[in-house]
Amino acid sequence: SLQPGALIVGSIRQLCLVRKISAGGAVLHADLPMEEGQRLELELETGEQLDGVIAWKRGLEFGLRFEERIDILPILARNLASQPGERRRMPRVEIAAPALIETGAGTELVTVRDIAQGGSKVETPHPLAVDERVVLTPEGLRPIEGVVRWVEGRIAGVSFQAELPWQELIPWLRARRDAGPAPFLSEASGGESGSAARTGEDPVDPGLHLNLPARVREGTRRWSIDVSTLTTRNVEFECFAALRLGTLLWIVLPGLEGWPARIVEIDGYRFTCEFTQPLHPAVLERVLALA
């Protein structure tokens, strides 16, 4: 059930299958003698023509890097529109979105790793149990009842009791894309001031010593904290809550609605958390400007 596409190299046109498509590139399956670094054009069945370079190759699978980042949602929407109305189904979409999950043991903050109409893959601070009934509430979406189908460590597959209509999913995905601060959007806009943190590696940034009022959410609990250090990758704060190592928190900073971070170090009442996705340097600058 992979979507077909066409690869165009010079005058050669060959059918391929699209395994994955993202803003920056695609994973394709094709029987074509191609080399890394080779340029070609991918034509999707919805008509988009995308120029790219082969980034890697393994057997008949290869990764294509697009010359220009693309917006996935219009392609997804056209794909849906091309399907007959009564059988229209959304493909699975990879995303990193904070969500609350209610289980028999309580409520926890988790990260939605992908979502489809029938279910979702979530990353949880503690392993879930197979056949466990849950209610998943991705940020900005309504609560969805589901059952845990499989568990691999902290990743679990949840199938929804009732299908989520694509009419709800598409606006949610659009809102997530537009809300930012998704790093790829800021990056694509370019023209940032050239700071050392721009590479995302933070090689020399020791963090800023702050006394920044912020909030934390963990499950349904929320409280105020004083952030002492903030970098694109880490946040450090003092708090008197009993929190376990590895817990996923939602850090709410001035001008930033919330960003998931996992506790990586506890020293008395001092907690160090690592953001599950680094903050974009421009976002860090904005937070600090508002502080």
């Binding site: 992979l2 994955k20 803003a23 920056g24 980042r69 996935i72 990879e94 790093p183």
Partner: peptide, 13 residues
Amino acid sequence: DTVYSLSGDVPPL
């Protein structure tokens, strides 16, 4: 099924 990804990266090997 074909997977769509909102992230900007080239899917890794």
